[in-house]
Write a protein that binds this DNA or RNA. Sequence first.
DNA 1: GTATACGAGATTGTATACAATTTCTTATAT
DNA 2: ATATAAGAAATTGTATACAATCTCGTATAC
Lengths: 223, 223
Amino acid sequence: MNAKEIAIYNKIKQAIIQQKLRPNMQLVETEIAESFGVSRTPIRNVLRRLSYERLVKIIANKGTFVTSSSKEEAKEVFEMRRILEGEAVKKACLLATEEQLLELEQMVEEEEKTHLDIEYYDAIQMSGEFHLKIAEMAGNSYFYQYLEDLISLTHVIISIYGKNQEEKDACLHHRHIFHAIKKRDEQLAAELALEHLIDMENNLQFSDKNQLSVSLTEIFNPK
Amino acid sequence: MNAKEIAIYNKIKQAIIQQKLRPNMQLVETEIAESFGVSRTPIRNVLRRLSYERLVKIIANKGTFVTSSSKEEAKEVFEMRRILEGEAVKKACLLATEEQLLELEQMVEEEEKTHLDIEYYDAIQMSGEFHLKIAEMAGNSYFYQYLEDLISLTHVIISIYGKNQEEKDACLHHRHIFHAIKKRDEQLAAELALEHLIDMENNLQFSDKNQLSVSLTEIFNPK
DNA sequence: GTATACGAGATTGTATACAATTTCTTATAT
DNA sequence: ATATAAGAAATTGTATACAATCTCGTATAC
């Protein structure tokens, strides 16, 4: 993707994460193209990329729709995050440079400072960036590539199933994880990272009312 | 991607894996389009997808080139495979149905039977399918998605750095892994899977002569 | 009144024309 | 003879016209 497409990609992605584009909403190519002042071609490229990341679902000859992760898909996302972030944080303990540790600490401090002031959706975005920074420190580009997608999806999942009280402990957890990495305590860091993710998952409410139905058939004629 | 594009995608992917399209080779859109009897549009879609999987590299306004993984990139691929396949095989032990075990056994037997007869590149493809079957059995679609890409890249890596003696023990390893899964011995299965991957990596030769140069400039005017 | 069939509207899918960019060649000035 | 610049060729990037497909409403047959 070139710079122009990346800009469009980031805006659409952020709109999905910030729930301006809600799950199941249709993304009509011509409408998006018009709003960005370009033709359908680059829009189609961006939507394809987003579909590969599972943030949208393209149905042939029908349209592109914002992802509405099921309970099962959400579980898959969290399981894979535990696997990858557990390993990533261990590698980060081994490889972190002093400069990276400083950057990570600054991210935690930034998070704590703005903790209550800022918009809710900015808060979870900052939280995501902390996790991504650790992925970056792990010294294997696949951690970053995979976790970038999984974390984006987590944001969508929280927007569907969250109880809007997620980040109450997140900053504290992040600080603890940071300290473990700084002490280069692999075992502790991994444990804390897993606990943190399990906490996030436990804060989801998979009740029926949070399930966004794909069609009215599901509401009126459930099997 | 629709059926037509998937067909084109598979053919190009297989050509790369089977080294009919060698690393660093340029893939010109119009040429591929002509050979498939379609316009550039679907070809561009397929190439973008392949670039996301790192099988090709798209350089803006210049062209698309078959990936030529560096030594460092190869190490990343194997590290991520160890992480994912170690977990996948453990979950496969827990979740495998009798039917799946039968299918897996049949794959091993098929591999052993045709072990020496068939084409070299068909052999490593069969080997890859064994690993993918376990990913499928792990009950989390991300194992399959990620490992599909990593295994494809492994084929390219072996084609660059391999000593052409990889699959001598592969069948045996596969049978041992199968037995561990059948006995539902998580620990053993994971150990064998890791050993198998380490073995594969140790069979690579990262000598300079295997390094495919990106350009003639690198041959004649190395910095 | 109901069911089927036809057709209009909306949306995506494909081909193609043209624009932008890069690379290589060639011509020209020194 | 060499260096620089102009331009030609090759390739990708973008916009657009048209085709294919799906959805839904309406009309018509029974």
